[in-house]
Write a protein that binds this DNA or RNA. Structure first.
Lengths: 230, 230
DNA sequence: ATGCGACTGGAACACTGTTCCATGAGCCCA
DNA sequence: TGGGCTCATGGAACAGTGTTCCAGTCGCAT
C-alpha cells in the first residue's frame, strides 16, 4: 500500500505491545460504541491500559488518529467493493456500488462522515476518488471532463456523508430519528407557503423518504448528467 | 422572518447593551479575522468588554452561536441573490446564481462551510433548500422528483462547502494554497499508475484547476442530469 | 422609596489535547 | 556477565476550552 508509512518493526517487546494498528483499532471500537465525543486520550489510555504519553509515541495527534481510523474503514470498503462481483460489471454499476459502499460504511460508522468532510486530500478520499474516477474512461467520458465529473460525484458523496454524520450526532436511537424527522416536518409544514412554497410542500415527503434511496437517486442524477454531456 | 424567535425588546439598558445580534456580529468579526479556532467565549468576552456569563444569557451555547452566525451570512446571500437581476431570469440561471452565491460566501467566510456540514436541518440550510427547490417546478421537474433533485444539488453544495472550509483551515494564505496544491500534486504523480491510474493522471490538472469553475461544472452536471430525466 | 426581575461580570469547575520526564524493558557489544 | 543505549512506557503537569454559578447592579412599576 503506497499510502502507508514505511514500517520496519518485527514484533518487538511484549506480545501486547502498543502499535499504531492496535491504537487505531481501539479508537474505532470507542467511536463505534459511544460516538465521536467519547474518543478522548484518557478513554483510549484506559482501554489500552497505558498512559497518554505512550499513545503519543505512536500517533502524532488526535487528527492523525482520526484520519488513520477513517482511512482504515474506507480502505476496507474499497477493497471489499473492488474484489466483489462489481469489478467486471458495467462501469455505471461499479460507480453506484462504490457510492453505496461508502454510504453504508458511513451509516454504520457516522464519525467517518465527519472525518471525510473535515480533512481534505486525505488518503481515504484519494481511494474514493480513484475508485470512481478510474471508471469514467470506460463510461466514455472525455479525458478533460473526467476531473470535473469525479469531483462532482465525490463532493456529492462527501456532502451526504457530512449530513448523515450530523444526523447521527443528534440522535443515537432509530426511534429518535423518526421522532426528530416528525418534528422537523411539522415545523416545515408551518412555514408560510407564500414565502417557502417548496419547503412547505416537501415537508410530508420528509417523513417517509429513505436516505439511502435518495442518496442513490442523486448519484443517478449526476451519472445521467455525465452521460448527457458525452 | 419566520425563522427567527419572537423578540420584544425595545432598546433596554445602556445604548451598548448586549443582544444576540451584537454578539453574533462580534462573533462573525472574530471568525472572519482569525478563523474558527479563534472564536472562544473568552475572546468574545474581551471584544464585547463583558464576561462569559453575560453572553450565555443571550445565547444557549457555542453551537447556537455558530448556527446564528452562519444563518446570518447565508440569509444575506439569499436575499442578495433573490433581489438581484436573477429573480426573473431563467430558472436554470437562478439556481446557478444561488449556488455561486453560496460558494462565494463560503469562500469569503470558510467557517460557514464547516457549520453547514455540521448542523443539518438548520435554518441556513432551509433557505438554500427553498431557493433551489423553489425553482425546480419552473424547470419542468415533475413533482415527485423535485425532492430528490433539490437534495442532490444541496448535498453537492454542502460537500464542496465542507471541503473548502477544510482547505481554508489548512492554509490561511493564498500562497500557502498553491504551494500545498503543488505538494499534493507531487505526491499524486508518484502514485503507482497501475494501482492508481486516475489519481496519477489527474495530478497535473490539480495545480491549474479553478475551484470555482469546477464547482460550477458540477452544478451544471447535476442540472443536466435533472433535465435529461424530465 | 422600594422591590423585583432583567441583565451583568467574573470566579470556579470539569474536562480536553498535548508536553514532559523519570523510569523500565530488551538488545548489542565488550 | 555486565554495562551502556535506544526504544518505549505511564502518569503527572500545563494551558486552554465550554459551561455553570452567583453575588451584584440597573431601571422600571408600584
Amino acid at each position: 500500500m503506497v499510502l502507508m508509512a514505511t514500517r520496519t518493526q518485527r514484533t518487538k517487546r511484549r506480545t501486547d505491545a502498543l502499535s499504531k494498528e492496535r491504537i487505531v483499532e481501539a479508537a474505532i471500537e470507542i467511536l463505534d460504541a459511544d460516538g465521536e465525543s467519547a474518543l478522548t486520550f484518557r478513554a483510549l489510555s484506559a482501554r489500552l491500559a497505558t498512559g497518554s504519553g505512550a499513545i503519543y509515541w505512536h500517533v502524532a495527534n488526535k487528527d492523525d488518529l482520526l484520519a488513520a481510523a477513517a482511512n482504515d474503514v474506507i480502505a476496507r470498503v474499497m477493497t471489499g467493493v473492488v474484489s466483489g462481483a462489481v469489478s467486471g460489471a458495467e462501469p455505471q454499476e461499479a460507480i453506484r456500488a462504490i457510492a453505496i459502499g461508502v454510504f453504508d460504511a458511513i451509516d454504520a460508522h457516522p464519525w467517518v462522515g465527519t472525518q471525510l468532510s473535515r480533512e481534505p486530500w486525505q488518503s481515504a478520499m484519494v481511494q474514493i476518488f480513484e475508485g470512481i474516477g478510474g471508471r469514467l474512461p470506460a463510461l466514455g467520458v472525455p479525458a478533460r471532463a473526467q476531473f470535473d465529473a469525479a469531483s462532482a460525484l465525490v463532493n456529492y458523496i462527501l456532502g451526504v456523508a457530512g449530513q448523515n454524520a450530523a444526523n447521527a450526532r443528534l440522535h443515537t436511537q432509530e426511534s429518535d430519528r423518526t421522532a426528530f424527522l416528525g418534528t422537523v416536518a411539522a415545523r416545515w409544514v408551518q412555514f408560510d407557503p407564500a414565502e417557502y412554497p417548496f419547503v412547505h410542500q416537501v415537508a410530508t415527503q420528509l417523513i417517509e423518504h429513505d436516505d439511502r434511496e435518495q442518496f442513490l437517486a442523486g448519484i443517478d442524477l449526476i451519472l445521467a448528467g455525465i452521460g448527457s454531456a458525452r
